[in-house]
Design a protein around this nucleic acid. Structure first.
Lengths: 204, 204
DNA sequence: TATGCTATTTATAACCT
DNA sequence: TAGGTTATAAATAGCAT
């Protein structure tokens, strides 16, 4: 005889609570079963009692249902934190390509540096030598060009300093107090260049 | 107005079935909730509709409930096809390292081949030139060694052929019908070597 | 497709054995 | 602790909107 509505809050009386648990549990499972049959749905229910005992119901294989649940959540709800297997396969493929490229480059590098030549044929060695000779030529040209530019820059700097000195001596008097300036000498520019080479280093 | 008891079997009318599904589903979840509160139990329910849509209820965290279930049963419900974000981050980090390595190797390669020198300092150019010179020296030595070995092998072959001819001529008679054999000549070995160089090619 | 209504079925709280 | 009884609350089938 139900005396009135019950409040949905924890039943404090242990005996009542256990009885209610047992009855409502079977009620819930019955409803779950009916739902699955009436509506052709896949239903699973898991209950842990307060004491930690497990009760479960599933309209079909509960493991399959839970797996399906995990996959569903993985695909649609937490997609960002669960990349697909396909995506990872793509990454791995890329990595294989990269590893191959690294190996290829390393071998090439080694050969260009005169290492790991033990298994090279004469013909291959000839090709490498030709390549290296070509490289050496280019690098030397570039070095020469850079050196030339440097020298040119320093010469310009030297001329600038000379002009400055001339202007200064003009203002102070007829006799410049600094080093005497040779004039008309063919060697002059070279001498000044040599001096100037040291200048930027002591300045900077 | 309920006209009478219903049979617990699949509702054939689609509309009715969907309405019943919706109503009974919320009824089930309500019962599940009440059970969890009244009896202090941990309750989870998973429903897949006929169309494959997921509905779930859990009195606490459903993942925890499923995990507890898995532990209780001693089974795992990992969605195999979904690698963890952490794993993918690891892969990506590796890839970044590999990309850096490739770039480094490519730059080094380019420099060894006399390319992309535009931004090299004089000092760097000097280092590259030194490296290339060293490489060239090694490659040339190796080439020389290989060539020497080849010549040595061919000379041995030449001597072998000479011995063979001597043996053959001894059997046929005093006069060998082949080419006459010069002897005591200083040029002899070189001549034979030159001949022999062509031999393996025509044979193989 | 969802929500409201209501007659009726179903679940169940309290009690009993 | 389990199962049965019963008065009552709750759920819900069929219909309407």
């Amino acid at each position: 005889m139900v005396r009135g509505k019950i409040q949905i809050k924890k039943i404090e009386n242990t005996t009542s609570r256990q009885v209610t648990f047992s009855k409502r549990r079977s009620g819930l499972f019955k409803k779950a079963h009916e739902l699955s049959v009436l509506c052709d749905a896949q239903v699973a229910a898991i209950i842990f009692s307060q004491k930690g005992r497990l009760y479960d119901f599933a309209s079909s294989d509960i493991q399959k249902t839970i797996k399906r649940y995990a996959e569903y959540k993985g695909e649609y709800f937490v997609a960002e934190s669960h990349p697909t297997e396909q995506y990872v396969q793509g990454l791995k493929k890329e990595m294989v390509t990269m590893v191959e490229k690294i190996e290829m480059l390393e071998v090439h590098n080694q050969k260009l540096m005169g290492k790991s030549l033990a298994f090279c044929s004469l013909k291959e060695l000839q090709e490498i030598a030709t390549q290296i000779e070509k490289s050496l030529h280019i690098v030397r040209s570039r070095k020469a060009k850079l050196y030339e530019d440097e020298v040119e820059k320093l010469k310009a700097k030297g001329r600038e300093l000379k002009d400055e000195r001339v202007r200064l001596s003009g203002r102070v008097g007829e006799e410049p107090s600094g080093m005497p300036m040779p004039s008309g000498s063919k060697e002059k520019e070279d001498v000044e260049t040599d001096l100037s080479i040291g200048f930027p280093k002591t300045r900077s």
